[in-house]
Design a binder for these strands. Structure first.
Length: 494
DNA sequence: TTTTGAGTTGTTCGA
DNA sequence: GTCGAACAACTCAAA
């Protein structure tokens, strides 16, 4: 048994030891938290606290199991865990941090403490389900109690099925059936206090080194985001206090970020549950179907991931396996860094790189550009977003990239190729969004801000812009790229 | 089994 | 400047 060095007298330590281990009121219960870093509306915590047993609240960094978190997501995780540790200790408990293989760690803690129950909230990635299933089988074979709980989706993937028993492959009937099917229960309150087993060894979060040091790009990201449960709820409430009413139109305006909820990283780390979002939105008597439909898309993406564990690595539609990708690494790198010469794309990619978040409308423009203008395999883009987005959601990221590529379920038709400058003119009409992230062309009049290459020489000179020097010329010609993409899609279908 | 209607987010062309 | 059609068939879901 590992006991942390503390300033307790020998007697006190002996009393603690006896109280905790020799004559326990009951055997402890292990609560394994994963991407459900919240106290409120958390079924696994609720069940465990109400069992009356002493708790061991555990978070495991599973290291190289599954897909390693991207850099931005690690920053978020650090702050989210910090916040959660504080709120648990404020209520008299402790969050135990461990690093390594989950099965071994859980086993070790069971041996040390005599815990006879393990609970967790379900997760849906293939690799994670395999781990969870193996642990469940093993513990059950040893007559220990194991329970998984529904917490992070409104509908489990197996709860919504077509008449023939399969999963839905088209969003609209999926969401219609899901809504007809489910009753959303009230959100659970946060536990009032925690009675945790003391003396269980825990890592120090700082030793996990989730934060970047030189350069410290992470703290700049945190200027625009506040991880944690309280901040998540505050963001939802401020969104519901106004912006939700104009969501259907305003969500398309990257020049006004208040138009979207920006809940994605909070949701991805489980700082807020879809049920809380659903209930709060309904409670406030808002009828924003459009906003709740986005929760529906998240549900749909998780269903796709559940039934297609390789959603992030394989074309959902296999006829895309023969698509003639023809990308140029230098141009892909220009895309990553926001140097394509198309202001709307560049502003978006710089926003992503600098802030760890990107506006939804811009995600489509940037993804379409990489795939259809640069003829790059969508997996290249998926990997970049996985690394740079704070949220790095395994389902939404993969499903959405496939959607844009046309290889996914219910996907965008292949001939839908976003025009990067007309999208800019439509959704950033004054160029404010572009100017925010591309100051070097900020003095261009709005007439040319989305197409600097069409500006007369004297206009460019007056704005201090020298194309090819202070800001790139377009890396590809829009019309030619579009025709090439259409030809490529045609070819892959023949 | 066959049929029928529907399907997140767009662009371009020509009247 | 505005508007409808074409893009090109295909898959899905339900009757």
């Amino acid at each position: 048994m590992v006991v942390k060095a503390q300033n307790h007298s020998f007697l006190q330590r002996a009393i603690d030891f006896i109280r905790n281990y020799n004559m326990p009121k009951q055997n402890p219960i292990i609560v394994w938290l994963r991407r459900d870093l919240r106290l409120a509306d958390n079924p696994v915590l609720h069940v465990a606290v109400h069992s009356g047993k002493p708790l061991i609240i555990l978070y495991i960094d599973e290291l190289n199991k599954g897909r390693a978190l991207g850099g931005a997501a690690e920053v978020w995780l650090h702050h989210s865990l910090t916040d959660l540790m504080k709120s648990i200790s404020d209520k008299g408990g402790q969050l135990i941090l461990r690093r390594g293989e989950a099965a071994a760690i859980i086993d070790e803690i069971i041996k040390e403490t005599g815990a006879d129950e393990v609970h967790w909230n379900r997760r849906y990635e293939g690799w994670a389900r395999e781990i969870d299933e193996a642990i469940k089988t093993d513990l059950k074979s040893r007559a220990l109690k194991v329970e998984s709980h529904k917490a992070n989706l409104l509908t489990e993937p197996w709860e919504v099925a077509t008449k023939t028993g399969g999963f839905y492959k088209v969003f609209t009937p999926f969401w219609r059936a899901a809504k007809a099917n489910f009753t959303v229960d009230s959100s659970l309150p946060a536990p009032g206090s925690f009675d945790c087993v003391s003396g269980v060894a825990s890592d120090e979060l700082n030793d996990w080194k989730l934060l970047p040091t030189s350069p410290d790009w992470g703290s700049k990201m945190m200027d625009e985001h506040t991880p944690g449960e309280a901040a998540a709820m505050a963001r939802l409430e401020s969104f519901l206090a106004g912006p939700v009413e104009d969501y259907a139109e305003q969500r398309d305006r990257p020049d006004d970020e208040t138009g979207t909820s920006k809940l994605s990283p909070h949701l991805a780390f489980g700082e807020i549950s879809p049920r809380q979002i659903w209930n709060e939105t309904k409670d406030n008597d808002y009828t924003s179907d459009k906003f709740l439909t986005e929760i529906g898309w998240r549900e749909f993406s998780y269903t796709l991931l559940f039934y297609n564990p390789n959603l992030a690595s394989e074309n959902y539609k296999s006829d895309f396996d023969k698509f003639p990708w023809d990308s140029d690494e230098a141009k892909v790198e220009a895309w990553r860094r926001g140097q394509t010469g198309y202001p709307m794309v560049d502003a978006g990619m710089r926003q992503l790189w600098q802030t760890g978040w990107q506006h939804n409308r811009v995600r489509m423009i940037c993804a379409s550009f990489l795939i259809k203008h640069l003829l790059t395999d969508w997996r290249v883009g998926e990997a970049w977003y996985w690394d740079t987005l704070l949220e790095a959601d395994p389902a939404s990221n993969a499903a959405s990239w496939q959607w844009v590529a046309g290889s996914g379920a219910d996907a965008s038709p292949y001939f839908r190729i976003f025009n990067p400058f007309s999208q800019g003119e439509k959704f950033d009409p004054n160029g404010d969004y572009v100017r925010k992230y591309i100051p070097e062309i900020g003095r261009l009049p709005k007439k040319y801000i989305h197409q600097p290459w069409t500006a007369p020489k004297h206009v460019l000179a007056q704005a201090g812009v020298e194309l090819g020097k202070t800001y790139p010329k377009p890396v590809v010609n829009h019309k030619e790229a579009r025709e090439k993409a259409l030809a490529g899609y045609k070819e892959s279908r023949s």
